[in-house]
């Protein structure tokens, strides 16, 4: 058992359509897969059937992008009930989504827009997270997002904002180590100090990803490259603080052969196990 009373599944990868056939036919060794729930939940046909087949052999965890936790539009309860039915159908042991807003004024922004770090935004998120958790009846994790802007930090900083919501809503943290690293670069802070300041007992899952700078040099959290060494280093230090958990290699674009992603998942496993072994030696010493 890992943190936040969730199973520590070790390294896993994001399940993408391009890998369905190979996974179904070859059943490669992989601890678990994460899916984007909205890519499957309302559909029948090939996607849903492939998911059903893969779910017979591997744990599947549902990760969302549409709950718009920080929005001021009313929570879409009908969507939430459909999501619940889907997550229970695939036997997802927990669920997650991002601490951000994606819809406002009933308009879909189709991206994870960060929130202003204000008391009002905290209260709004906490109220909505309680409803979400009560409705889904599953442990629920919120993910820290990459943010290219700071909308407001007059009242508090990001770490305080995130920590307060985690405590007041009593939910878990999906700690995206890459996002922390990139935000550290964008906003000039020490990523490890940021991570250390969070309530790490609430970490139920970790995300790792890589990026390719755009042609104009802009860095975007594009999930289109292997996890870079700087993020592996930060992960090594993070896992020593959190203890064992479930670690996902995210890749959405420039998909490599499946075996490449599985190698990265194995690397995450090895780092996690080495860290836990070291911790035991230190504890015994």
């Amino acid at each position: 058992m890992g943190n936040y009373s969730l199973s520590a599944l070790g390294g896993g990868i994001g399940l993408r359509h391009a890998y369905f056939r190979e996974i179904i036919e070859k059943k490669p060794a992989c601890n678990w897969f994460e899916i984007i729930s909205e890519d499957f939940m309302d559909y029948g046909g090939r996607e849903r059937e492939s998911l059903r087949e893969i779910g017979k052999h591997y744990p599947i965890i549902g990760h969302g992008v549409c709950l718009s936790i920080g929005s001021t539009d009313p929570l879409d309860m009908e969507f939430l009930h459909r999501l619940k039915a889907f997550l229970h159908e695939i036997k997802s042991p927990w669920a997650s989504d991002h601490l951000c807003f994606t819809m406002v004024d009933h308009t879909n922004l189709n991206d994870l827009i960060p929130l202003p770090f204000t008391r009002e935004a905290v209260t709004n998120c906490v109220e909505r997270l309680k409803i979400i958790q009560d409705t889904l009846e599953l442990p629920f994790l919120i993910e820290n997002v990459t943010r290219y802007v700071t909308l407001s930090d007059r009242e508090m900083g990001e770490a305080e904002f995130l920590s307060t919501i985690l405590e007041e809503a009593d939910c878990g943290l999906l700690l995206d180590v890459t996002n922390v690293y990139l935000n550290g670069q964008f906003h000039g802070y020490d990523p490890l100090a940021f991570i250390s300041s969070l309530p790490l007992k609430r970490v139920g899952q970790i995300h790792l990803a890589g990026w390719e700078p755009a042609s104009d040099g802009t860095i975007i959290d594009s999930h289109d490259a292997p996890v870079p060494d700087v993020v592996w280093d930060l992960f090594r230090e993070t896992i020593a603080l959190t203890g064992p958990t479930s670690v996902l290699i995210e890749r959405d674009k420039g998909l490599p052969p499946l075996s490449d992603l599985l190698k990265e998942a194995t690397q995450a496993d090895q780092i996690m196990h080495a860290s836990c072994k070291d911790n035991k030696v230190h504890a015994a010493g």
């Binding site: 929005s71 001021t72 406002v104 004024d105 308009t107 827009i113 009002e120 709004n124």
Partner: peptide
């Protein structure tokens, strides 16, 4: 907060 998020939407989109 709703007004603020709405302004962010307008600036972005």
């Amino acid at each position: 907060l709703a007004n603020f998020l709405s302004a962010v939407r307008e600036l972005i989109l």
